[in-house]
């Protein structure tokens, strides 16, 4: 399985973990599942009842929005970098 890097902003960082977490994952779904297993409270924020990404967070794979790729099924390669940040619309 490809080795990828999950990058979280400090606001979402997991206590006891660094902002960057290396993990094995063949598709985006594996990364999201791994994150939710460490931070279960993020589950309902990240995914809707059909297991699809909610837009309250934006997920980028090497800087490209995952929703414009293949969503949760986007295949990953070695050294891919996955960033998750809250979507913001206020002002």
């Amino acid at each position: 399985m490809p080795l990828v890097k999950l990058v979280l902003p400090r606001a979402l960082a997991i206590p006891g973990h660094s902002k960057e977490i290396m993990m094995e994952a063949s598709m985006l779904k594996d990364v999201i599942d791994a994150l939710i297993s460490i931070r279960p409270e993020l589950g309902s924020k990240l995914l809707d009842s059909n297991g699809r990404l909610r837009s309250i967070f934006s997920v980028y794979i090497n800087g490209r929005n995952a929703e414009l790729l293949n969503g949760m099924e986007t295949e990953l390669r070695d050294n891919d970098e996955i960033s998750i940040i809250p979507s913001v619309a206020g002002g």
Partner: peptide
């Protein structure tokens, strides 16, 4: 590109 599917209803 940044906010592909973001909708106000979610936020």
């Amino acid at each position: 590109c940044l906010y592909a599917n973001v909708v106000d209803e979610d936020l």
